[in-house]
């Protein structure tokens, strides 16, 4: 095949185009997200610079490629870089459309899963928990510190993810996946530690109930604390988890339930 696969010199036009693709990913990726085909149009928009140049004079093939790339697509934006890079590399080498589409579909699943876990669940959640803790104690450092810590890694991941994968083609994909596996393993463990801690630190729920026993009153919350501190928050988290997993409720519904039950409990005096 051509130079691109070996990662040696890249001719000027593809080099320029892949940068355009990266910027489109960064600035406009979910503009036209819709329920029917999610980010299909957005993906197509990103790779247009390549299709435009390659099929300038071959309009029948162009139409085919355009339609094919307007298929269902859904991936974590930060990790879509590699998929775009790979697709562009294949389009540049005029690989047949079916192969390109199957690679796209094959990649979007795992990258979305890893991406959502690493970026949102682990990195963003912990980072913003720190920032929010600072903000609630009145410090401006909270919101301000978060800004560069988000912008810089996300920009680097999206920009270089796209370009690097394009340059290295298939090689890059394997490398990226192996690194991802080890990062995900460590990061997931850390995420679990944090989630366990958050159950206690972020959910405030205690019962003001008291019981009369002989001459004295006992605070039920104190009793509960001596058995297991943070029991009520833990129960609430557990219930939410079951509702999401077993009852398969949508998050928005669980929120309504929390609102109603929480208000009732407060009114009745249990919470």
């Amino acid at each position: 095949m051509s130079d691109q696969k070996n990662g040696t010199t890249m001719s000027q036009e593809p080099a320029r185009d892949i940068k355009k693709v990266a910027w489109r990913l960064i600035l406009a990726f979910q503009c036209c997200e819709n329920f029917e085909r999610e980010q299909a149009y957005d993906f197509l928009y990103c790779i247009l610079p390549f299709l435009k140049r390659k099929y300038k004079d071959r309009s029948e093939e162009l139409k085919e490629r355009l339609t094919a790339n307007n298929n269902f697509f859904n991936c974590n934006p930060v990790f879509t870089g590699p998929v775009l890079g790979m697709t562009c590399a294949m389009e540049e080498n005029e690989v047949d459309e079916e192969t390109i589409q199957s690679v796209k579909v094959g990649l979007m699943g795992p990258l979305a899963g890893i991406g959502d876990t690493l970026v949102y669940t682990l990195y963003m959640s912990v980072l913003f928990a720190f920032g929010a803790a600072l903000a609630t104690s009145g410090s401006i450092a909270g919101p301000i510190m978060v800004i560069p810590l988000v912008l810089i890694p996300l920009f680097l991941a999206r920009y270089y993810g796209t370009i690097y994968t394009f340059k290295k083609g298939m090689e890059a994909m394997d490398q990226i996946m192996t690194i991802m596996d080890s990062i995900t393993s460590v990061a997931s463990k850390f995420g679990c530690v944090m989630a366990g801690a958050m159950a206690v630190l972020l959910v405030s729920a205690s019962t003001p109930l008291t019981m009369q026993l002989g001459k004295g009153t006992i605070k039920i919350q104190d009793r509960l604390d001596s058995i297991l501190p943070g029991l009520i928050p833990l129960l609430v988290v557990g219930i939410c988890y079951l509702l999401l997993k077993k009852a398969k409720l949508k998050p928005v519904y669980v929120l309504w339930i929390l609102l109603v039950v929480g208000m009732l409990a407060s009114v009745v005096g249990v919470l």
Partner: peptide
């Protein structure tokens, strides 16, 4: 009070 329970959803 209900609002204070909301993080439980996020954690779940």
């Amino acid at each position: 009070t209900a609002g204070k329970l909301f993080p439980a959803l996020g954690i779940a």
